[in-house]
Nucleic acid binder design. Structure first.
Lengths: 206, 206
DNA sequence: TTGGACTTGTGAATTTCTTCACAAGTTATC
DNA sequence: GATAACTTGTGAAGAAATTCACAAGTCCAA
């Protein structure tokens, strides 16, 4: 398959959110135009994005909401459940562990790790915090799919190395630190500082 | 000034982070090559990014770490303090309010709002939670620069409208919901669900 | 059955972003 | 001061992403 751009995948994710909303409201079909209006893009963009994966619409009519959302879930790999571990039980890590929105979308938090002995043994939202040292061993028995890094920037690279060595192939990084990983490992960063600086730039040069 | 791409601004933010790190370690100069290696890009990209704003380097030598980081802070508008309000005192909102990393980078959290009367009056990290109804009035007296939206997706658009009416011109949106705002208002989204779905896609089609 | 109103899917055109490649400037060494 | 080793800044080339524009398919009403 031709390589799909990141921006395309992000938009698919947005489209899916609307489709699920429409599904709930019992709307049967939707046009690329309607989808575009809500996603802040153009109808041509919507059609082009979908065309990488096949042709799902009916000319003159649009797309079946149920069918298209099923296809998008399939494309995005959301038909299965993903096992997620959170590393770092600080403010952010704890908030994420308690945020049930993940589980609703098939991302199941199976463990929380921290390197601070004072935190190990306590529990967050029903999950006992485990020692980070035990990750490689435990990952062997129950391999997690995704590691969420909620550790200080200074520790991020070291933890990432450990995660990679444990065989985990996807990382969601909350630390404001660029990670160096093998290209077989997928990394997405959530960087609030960067987004705020983007706003600062916009306000300054607006 | 020519319009600057989002991707460029994001990279400037990344460069700045490294430069501050180098500054702390007492390194005086750095080349575009070194900057690129750490930022996961190319030296040509670094130089091109900077060239939109002027020429800050010395041929044969590289960039003065102190000078370049000062210029980047200036470009990104980080020389002043920004007044930030957090809207929504749930898990995410509360975690953000307690996260002191923002203040360190000049984003000062001045108030937390919530529409739930049960939460109003309590305090988070020394800030009393105020009623969302009072935002427009209070924003008149002390205009905030940035609103952080940490509300449920269903309420996000409504809250955004209120924020815009209150004269706030920048929004950091944590709700998994595309916001419709006038183009004079800058919006950045932090969408964890979307990032996770991006990882899901990568794992599925990897 | 025909005509009109829609809407998709997709090559081609366009725009935007990234990389190349090199002249020009700087420093260090002998 | 001549030479070698670097490195920047930037037009030009190349690649990638977006938008255009239209043939082709669908539906509906008369």
């Amino acid at each position: 398959m031709k390589r799909i751009a990141d921006s395309t995948v992000r938009r698919l994710s947005i489209y899916l959110r609307f489709l699920e909303d429409f599904e709930k409201r019992g709307i049967a079909t939707i046009s690329s135009d309607e989808l575009a209006a809500r996603g802040g893009t153009t109808s041509a963009q919507v059609r082009k994005d979908l065309s990488f994966f096949g042709s799902f619409g009916k000319r003159g009519l649009g797309y079946s909401v149920a069918e298209l959302s099923a296809r998008l879930r399939q494309i995005l790999g959301l038909e299965r459940e993903w096992q997620v571990v959170i590393i770092g039980a600080g403010k952010i890590g704890a908030a994420l562990a308690q945020y049930h929105g993940f589980a609703q979308r098939g991302f199941r938090i199976v463990a929380v790790y921290d390197s601070d002995p004072a935190k190990v043994g306590r529990s967050v939202d029903g999950l006992v915090i485990r020692s980070l040292d035990s990750l490689p061993e435990e990952a062997k028995r129950h391999p997690p799919d995704i590691a969420v890094l909620a550790v200080p920037a200074t520790a991020a690279q070291e933890v990432a190395d450990m995660v990679v060595k444990s065989g985990i192939r996807a990382i969601l990084n909350f630390a404001p630190q660029q990670l160096q990983v093998p290209e077989t490992v997928a990394v997405k960063a959530v960087n609030m500082a960067m987004e705020l600086e983007g706003l600062s730039f916009a306000l300054t040069n607006g």
